[in-house]
Amino acid sequence: MTTMDTHSKSSDTGTPGWKRYAFADHFRNAEDEFDACKLGFWLFLATEILLFSGLFCAYAMFRLLYPEAFAAGSHHLDVFYGGINTLVLLLSSFTVAMAIRCAQRDNQKWLRINLIITIFCAFLFFFIKIAFEYIPKWQQGIRPGILYSNPFAAHPQEPTWWSVYYGATSVHALHVLIGAGLLSWCLYRSIRFKAYGPKHYTMLENAGLYWHLVDIIWIFLFPLLYLIH
């Protein structure tokens, strides 16, 4: 992902960036470079899955050890907001896929519109998470670890549940922000240089893959945290 775009810095000519793009000099041709970037990014996605696997393992382990605490804790979560956020992410996954399709068909206008919708969804997800979930719970004293001060805990191990909840969702939220950042960078380059088109859309495609990963992790977190009681 990092070696592309070396030669597309100048924007003065009228030619779109994707037409001016020349592949990096240590590759034999553009297809090799595209394949290499895709392979590298899939490997990176595998590391992301494994990163979250630790959190999922901790979840499974403590669910086995303290099932009552987990049941009691998950009752405090609002399925409504969780469900809205799931829909928001699903929609954004669709629009980012459409953005890549638009790049392949050189539809620069809808490429941007789709990217803007995706980025908007990312921030909407983050806003709902913070404003309707984290802040109200924090005010009730439902906090991770030693900060927990809710007097109405149903089970002595309920703080452990909240630690797992805050750990998993905050690492995920961090990924939402990173994904939004990547997509914003793509949007900037698209507006400034018309950087993505039928022959060159590597970075957009990889940012899209990252966004799908963020989405799919939430698809697993949502039922595990909100729906199982």
């Binding site: 990163l51 979250f52 696997s53 630790g54 670890g145 900060l147 703080p159 452990t160 630690s163």
Partner: peptide, 18 residues
Amino acid sequence: IGITLALLIYERLLHVGI
């Protein structure tokens, strides 16, 4: 190990009980 050490730091700073 990344997530393990992140959880360890989380444990160390907030005593989360993992």
